[in-house]
Nucleic acid binder design. Structure first.
Lengths: 196, 196
DNA sequence: AGTCCTTCTTAAAGGTTGTAAGCAACTGAT
DNA sequence: ATCAGTTGCTTACAACCTTTAAGAAGGACT
């Protein structure tokens, strides 16, 4: 038989494309083998098992996302940077839902550290450079930003906003306005109850 | 053979418990049948297929979450309400990770409407009663709050915050402070770039 | 050509979902 | 109390997926 030229890299790439088309959970060794015109067992020469494949796709997605975000961030600061980063994040997730789902995979500590996950935190920190936040608050803000971006995109994609007529685009923009506002005026200490 | 007394309700309940123990994705018809001491095929008398089972667990989780949130909200307003709701949400997710994962299932429009999903929006709106937001902004704020809660809990549970020493508890509280602050002072129109 | 490593196939075991046929148990009527 | 009907469960089976093992074929290098 002529060799199909399968490599771990091509498998990962094809798995990512397949994930965007049919969903990350539906990417199987069998389906991937079919796409390459080989038998399922052939893939085990290049990939340890399906979990290994999933982790490779996750790393690919994290790297791609980090690159888009870095590009979006270049030469911007303050709210410009915030909006550009957030839009790049959301655009990637919507364009590559399978990859984005992969990026949410639980990675063990070692894997996560040497993957692009750390770069994300650094970039989110870069956004905050335009706002003036002392150190523990900076980490809190990074976590809040990441949470809001991920949460919004995640709920939007799973249809959580479809029950209300309000434009999802508009809400996204107003959410970014709100984040900008709160970053410019980060609460100093735990306040009491609101009094309007 | 003596009958095992399987019903759709008991199956759903057991599936939810199993999901919390071994993960929602690992709840299989086979595993559930094993837990009931019956053969897998027996479950198909009570449940259409595995997707049907998953949807039932999702609805259960949404109903439980709504109930906890409603209890937390009772008799509170303003920041008290915000914090109580958010903590109830997060506590449920951490105590019942499998159920919480189920609640994130994509539900078709019909299913979502008659499930407790709508109640969540209403409750989040109830939180906002203490803050004074005009109508389109209210929806935007609801979406932002839900996004932040879900995003934070989701990232926290998938280990996204483990790479930084800062206390996850502290960040959560500061995030709630920030949300309270931005709700009290919701930006009126899309502002320009930040100027510090 | 011969050797060796790698890639791919075949074969097979074990797990999963789901359907169909049949038997066993409970129900309610006579 | 027995008999029919319904329901719940089992067995049997088809189809699919994952993974391992053994062997054949491709390509490189001597």
């Amino acid at each position: 038989m002529a060799r199909a030229g399968v490599t771990a890299e091509r498998l990962t790439q094809a798995a990512a494309e397949l994930a965007d088309e049919i969903g990350f959970q539906n990417v199987t060794i069998s389906a991937l083998a079919r796409a390459f015109g080989v038998k399922p067992a052939a893939l085990y020469s290049h990939v340890k098992d399906i979990q290994d494949l999933r982790i490779r796709v996750a790393k690919l997605a994290l790297a791609e996302l980090a690159e888009r975000a870095a590009t979006a961030l270049a030469g911007r600061s303050g709210k410009d940077a915030l909006v550009a980063f957030a839009n790049a994040y959301r655009a990637y997730a919507k364009k590559h839902p399978g990859r984005y789902a992969a990026a949410q995979l639980e990675l063990d500590y070692e894997t996560a550290v040497d993957s692009a996950a750390a770069r994300h935190s650094e970039m989110t920190r870069a956004i905050l450079r335009g706002y003036d936040l002392p150190d523990p608050a900076q980490t809190d803000a990074v976590r809040m930003l990441h949470s809001t971006f991920h949460g919004y995109v995640s709920l939007e994609m799973s249809g959580g906003f479809r029950h209300t007529p309000r434009s999802v685009e508009e809400s996204w923009e107003r959410t970014l306005d709100a984040l900008d506002a709160v970053l410019r005026n980060w609460p100093h200490q735990s306040g009491g109850a609101s009094d309007g």
